[in-house]
Structures are given as structure tokens and as C-alpha cells.
Design a protein around this nucleic acid. Structure first.
Lengths: 141, 141
DNA sequence: TTCTAAATTTAGAAATGTTACAAATTAGGA
DNA sequence: TCCTAATTTGTAACATTTCTAAATTTAGAA
């Protein structure tokens, strides 16, 4: 399902403006599974908005993260931050060789989330489950 | 148990030199549970080594990560990378307000790791389990 | 529709965190 | 001790992210 509506509506609900730039960024986020960086979003949305600024991309991403409708995966050191529009509990597998990040649905995450919710005193806002390794393709080389 | 020996030995085993700087960094990593940044390590180890360079801290951390004996947690955007000498499967709880990161032991992680090991074709090298939220102290304010 | 105030975008500068570099130093074996 | 390669150091370079101020645009009010 396309949750770009969901992203856009959450902006609306927060009393923020639905600018065409924000809509384009939301659409792109909802349509991709490549866990893009801010720069990747900029490069791919800019054709529709020749005046689009990288600052706007960062602003919008920050806003969406604050609203809790997208997650950040965390870079490793100098690598750029990656964003994930799928906030349901799921594991990401990150290949340390080709840098690709894929999703891995797991049975165990709901139980884990329930455990943390009930046994910690934290008010949870987001989560990040990441394994590093070599993907099948990169093991072959 | 103090695993600074473990860290140092892994350097030795890889054929690398046991410099006093590296030993000090390993000791500090093993002794703290604060998930320090490179800068935090630098600040706290430097009194013992007035000439210590931040570059050495980064070099040593990179080496230890490559050896798989410490993990990175991933910063969020501009925040600095955090390092964790505890590579056993465990959840970290990160407070978005006070920036503190604590450990949270969980029953479910072994099962999750087994699942990913058996059902993905990845050769796993490390993992990262993080929840973001407000810690009890920061909820109060 | 037009007007208005506030929110947003923009471009570029600044800040931050990390890595690269070359010269000086040092560890560890012969 | 001496030797050589590994390591450290300080600084410069780099990449990513945030800040800033001016210009633009949105959405509601008149």
C-alpha cells in the first residue's frame, strides 16, 4: 500500500503546510524501499523541482522523524544517515560491502517491543534493528 | 568481568601492536557503560597521554570494529557515533532528550539472531538494536 | 479575489564529525 | 642495541548536516 497519504496527512494533522516540495518528498519516501539518504532523495526529487534545496530535504526529513512517521537507521561514522518510511517493527540487513539495506520481516520483534514497553520506563518514539554483514552477492565475489 | 584483556588480546591475535595508547583506549572502553563517542574517549584518556591524538582514537576504534570486538550504534544525523564494547546481543535504549544510552537485556534477541542467521543468506558481522524515547527522568521535566 | 501574517524555501556559509596525509616516533623482533 | 615496519601525531581536507537571512509562498481573513 502507498502510505504517502499517511505521511502527508500526518503533516496536515500537525498543523504544518502541505507544500509541493514536502508532498514530493513524502511520495518518494513512500514509493522506495532503498532506505535513501538525504542526498539520494534530493537527486531523485529535484527533476520535478529544479529549485529544490537540500536544506528543504533535511528540514522535511527532520519534521517527519519528529512526527514519528519515518525512522533513521543511523549511519556508521562518516556514512550518511538513511531514512526508512516503514516504521513497523522490522529488521534491516545492511551489507558492509555494497551498502545496500534490505528489510527482513521477523516474528520476534513484536514480542521484543512489548517487552521493552512494559519493562522499561521509557516512552518509546522509534526503533532501529540492524544487522551488518555480507549479502549473498558480495560473499560470492 | 573486565574484558579489556579480551580487547587487547584480539589486537595481539591480529598481529597488531599493543601500544600504550591502544591499551588505554581498550581499558576505558571495557570499564565504561556510557557508550562513548570518540571525543568522549579522547577527553577521558588524554590525561594519561597528553600527546594523544583524536586520530589515534578513531584509528583504534575502527580497528576494533573491524575485528568485531566492539560495535557502533549509529548516530542520528549530525550526532557523533557511539561505540559499545558489549557485543553480546542486547537492546540499547537511547533518550532523545538527555542523549544517554543504557542497556536493556532481552530474552528475545537470541531467537531473533538465530532466525536471521538461518533464514537470511547473509554472513553476519554485527548488530544494532536501539529504541529511541524519553527516559523516566526526562519525561518528568 | 485580494490582502496579510506566518510558515516555508532557498542558497550559501558555517559547524560538526571523520578521514587522509606526511613526518616523526615507537614497538618488538633480530 | 639496532632495524624496520607499524603506529602516532597534528593538521588539512572532506563530507554531512545545520544555521542564517532574504525571498517566496501558503492558507486563512477580509
Amino acid at each position: 500500500m502507498d502510505n504517502s497519504l499517511h505521511l502527508a496527512q500526518s503533516l496536515r494533522k500537525a498543523g504544518l503546510r502541505l507544500t509541493p516540495q514536502r508532498l514530493a518528498i513524502c511520495s518518494f519516501l513512500a514509493s522506495t524501499d532503498q532506505h535513501p539518504t538525504a542526498q539520494m532523495i534530493y537527486d531523485q526529487v529535484r527533476p520535478q523541482f529544479p529549485t529544490l534545496s537540500l536544506a528543504t530535504v533535511y528540514n522535511t526529513l527532520e519534521t517527519l522523524v519528529q512526527l514519528g512517521v519515518i525512522n533513521t537507521l543511523g549511519g556508521t561514522g562518516s556514512e550518511a544517515e538513511r531514512y526508512d518510511a516503514d516504521t513497523s517493527p522490522h529488521v534491516n540487513l545492511s551489507c558492509v560491502s555494497c551498502q545496500r539495506v534490505i528489510d527482513f520481516p521477523s516474528q520476534h520483534l513484536h514480542a521484543l517491543e512489548d517487552e521493552v514497553t512494559s519493562r522499561s520506563e521509557y516512552r518509546l518514539l522509534g526503533s532501529r534493528f540492524l544487522f551488518f554483514g555480507l549479502c549473498p552477492d558480495c560473499q560470492a565475489t
